[in-house]
Amino acid sequence: MPVVFRWKGHRFHFFANEGDPREPAHIHVSRAGATAKFWLSPEVELAYDRNFDARTIKRLQEVVEERRAELEDAWNDFFA
C-alpha cells in the first residue's frame, strides 16, 4: 500500500489493488484504528469515515484539498 505522505500521525495512502475496474482516484487516511476515504475528483468529497470525530474529518478534508494535486499525481504515477 503506497503511502503518499504522513501528517500529524495520519497516513495518507491508497491500495495497490483498487478494484476491477479500478475505482476513481481517491485517498485513504488512517490513524490508530480510524480510517476515512476521500474521492479526489471532481471535488474532494468524503466517501466514508470510521471512528474519526467530525472536527478531525473537517481538518483531514482541508489537508486533502490543499494537497490534492500531489495526491492525484501519486495516484496517476502509481497506476500509469
Rank of each mutant, 00 (worst) to 15 (best):
W75R: 01
E66M: 11
D20S: 09
D20L: 07
A32L: 13
N51M: 11
H13Q: 12
R22Y: 09
A69P: 08
L71H: 00
Q61A: 04
E45F: 04
N51Q: 12
W75D: 00
N76C: 10
E70H: 15
W75Y: 02
R59C: 04
F79E: 05
E23Y: 00
A16Y: 06
A16I: 04
E65K: 09
V4Q: 09
E23L: 02
H26K: 09
A36Y: 02
R50T: 09
E43Y: 06
D49E: 08
L40D: 02
P21Q: 08
A47F: 02
E18I: 06
E43P: 01
K58Y: 13
A16E: 14
F38K: 04
L60T: 06
S30A: 15
F5M: 11
N17S: 13
A16P: 13
E23H: 02
G9Q: 10
R11A: 11
N17C: 12
P21T: 05
D49I: 04
H10M: 07
D53P: 14
K8W: 12
G9E: 08
N76E: 15
F78E: 04
F78D: 03
L71Q: 00
S30R: 09
R31C: 11
A47D: 04
R59M: 12
S41N: 06
F5A: 06
F79P: 12
A54C: 13
P21G: 08
A34S: 14
R59T: 14
L46E: 02
V4T: 10
V29L: 02
R55Y: 13
V44E: 00
V3F: 02
D20P: 01
V44Q: 00
S41W: 03
P2R: 09
V4D: 09
V29Y: 02
E18Q: 12
W75N: 00
P42K: 03
R22P: 13
V29E: 01
G19D: 05
K58T: 15
F78P: 05
A54Q: 15
R31A: 13
N17L: 10
V29T: 04
H28C: 11
D77E: 14
E62I: 01
A54H: 11
Q61I: 07
A25K: 03
H28K: 15
F52W: 09
E23W: 00
R11L: 08
R67D: 14
F15M: 13
G19Y: 06
R50A: 11
A25N: 04
A47V: 02
F79T: 12
E18G: 08
T56Y: 07
P42N: 07
V44W: 03
A47C: 06
D77M: 10
R55H: 14
A74N: 08
